[in-house]
């Protein structure tokens, strides 16, 4: 099991602290910090352009911050000994070349981590793409591409999942699938961090909420704490963010 690997209390914990990111003269992130814990779904919410994707990209080692740290299990992502078995990442799109088949895409990812190729059919089955594995990614619908990205993230059965706008492009059935799936992951003790700009869709899925607006964290806590006296998370959100 993942928690028997040592690293003690930091296992499965995402710790982001004091991130500052500038692009040219604009400051995209101004000291972003929060934690995501095992056994909980953490919703990272904010309007478009608030800095959600930038934060997650820094966490995943895709972009660099000018200041601050983003750690998984207490270490920066790029220093993880076995990234595929530690963190699964779902970013926008499919993350796959369109002229490869879904199965060929999963094959090279499996090879990069020395995973058994039998995992490919397992994850395709898990996300409901069992029949589409031999199709080229270019012929996938938007929702199928998103499912392939999720399948890729699950190849190494990681204790931590990071998802950027996982509900984008999904039909109602897909949204329901993702919600149920993420709840199950958290209930089995794993860490789930997801970003979204859709408050209504998430209120039933998340345990903890972090709200970002214009590069700053404006609220964080449990769902009940952040919702506070407001009627819903959505109302609390609009009270918190400036427009």
């Amino acid at each position: 099991m993942w928690f028997s690997r040592g690293l003690g209390s930091l296992n499965g914990v995402i710790t982001i602290d004091g991130l500052v990111k500038r692009r040219g003269k604009t400051e995209i992130l101004s000291g972003v910090g929060f934690q995501a814990l095992p056994g909980r779904v953490t919703g990272f919410l904010g309007p478009n352009g608030a800095g959600k994707s930038s934060t997650l990209r820094i966490l995943l080692g895709l972009d660099r911050a000018q200041q601050g740290t983003a750690l998984v299990n207490g270490v920066p992502f790029v220093s993880l000994a076995d990234p595929v078995r530690t963190v699964g990442a779902v970013l926008d799109g499919s993350g796959a070349h369109r002229s490869r088949t879904g199965r060929a895409h999963l094959r090279w990812v499996a090879r990069s981590a020395g995973l058994p190729l039998s995992r490919i059919d397992e994850v395709l089955e898990l996300v409901g793409l069992a029949d589409a594995g031999s199709k080229r990614v270019g012929r996938y619908s938007l929702g199928m591409g998103r499912r392939l990205a999720l399948a890729t993230a699950l190849l190494g059965d990681p204790p931590v999942l990071v998802l950027d706008e996982p509900l984008n492009g999904l039909d109602p059935e897909g949204i329901r699938f993702i919600r149920t799936f993420l709840r199950e992951r958290a209930e089995s003790g794993r860490t789930v961090l997801l970003s979204s700009h859709l408050m209504g869709e998430l209120a039933e899925t998340v345990d903890d909420v972090v709200v970002i607006d214009r590069g700053r964290i404006v609220a964080q806590g449990t769902l009940a704490e952040v919702t506070g006296a407001h009627r819903s998370l959505e109302e609390a959100f609009f009270a918190l963010v400036s427009r």
């Binding site: 990442a89 970013l91 993350g95 796959a96 270019g138």
Partner: peptide, 9 residues
């Protein structure tokens, strides 16, 4: 297709 993001993660 954004494959670079998969590669680098």
């Amino acid at each position: 297709g954004g494959q670079i993001r998969t590669t680098l993660t």
